[in-house]
Amino acid sequence: MSDRVLDVKNLSIDIPLAEGMLHAVDGIDIHVDKGETLCIVGESGCGKSLTSLAVMDLLPKKAIRRLERLDLAGASILDYSEQQMSDIRGSKMGMIFQEPMTSLNPAFTIGNQMVETLQRHRKMNRVAARDLAKRMLEKVGITAADQRLNQYPHQLSGGLRQRVMIAMTLLCEPELIIADEPTTALDVTIQAQILLLLQELQSEFDMGLILITHDLGVVARIATRVAVMYAGQIVEQGTVKQIFDNPMHPYTRGLMRCIPVPGKTKPGEPLGSIPGMVPSLVGKFTGCRFAERCDHVTDACRQSDIELRAESGKTQGYRCIIDAKEMAKVA
């Protein structure tokens, strides 16, 4: 497919720890097309950040990455050297991180940090690079861009810094942007602005966007497709409509019960929550990872690993032994 921006097949990440091997991510497939927003959701520690860092090849040194396929814009980058990877980082794919307060270097001006990115990837003199940086700041809604270029990160608010990060990531017009909880550290009012901005820019530049978030309200508004992660695996994926209207996996269903619905959820009524804890992923694990917390668990769930099964014409898939018909009954 020509407009496939990212294609990842069978990604696993192991981290050696003192207590044994942590299988943090196990057999993940994701893909993003041009102009599409893939939202990855799942609770803290399920491997969302590691997955995105693995795509950028920026994992911590001790982490061991295994992959069957890693294609960016139709070309395999699986066997790229560090040198080749650094050529495409920042130019063909960019990443926005959770902490705008610490993601920019305190010792250099905004202008300096933007210009260096451009000059790394494009043949451009300082003046032209500065000019482009200024226009990009304006594009992300920053006023008085000229002055901002001369300011240091600590002189800007968190929301502004995240806008700067977005502008910096967009400079070389990458085909793919990965945003790892870009608004978690910001005020609620600013969160919405930043997400809307990301969405706008994504369609303007016709990029692929991977957005990692905890916020299902956000997902409902801007996702094209959704991947639900649990304990290092994707337990369900599908279009945003499929996931919200017809969640199949018991974990996804649990998540959906956690969102308050205006008009339906009465004030004071407790929101759903999923009791229990995520299993330890140190050492070998067999069977369904959600079994401990699942209402529908049977012996079969613990005996062998569960494959991701395809439903609804293959765009939706989920990892559960209960098939669609039965699932409709238990709901």
Partner: peptide, 12 residues
Amino acid sequence: DYIRTARAKGLR
């Protein structure tokens, strides 16, 4: 984090 950003920008 800012070193991670620098690497994510593809700097040498």
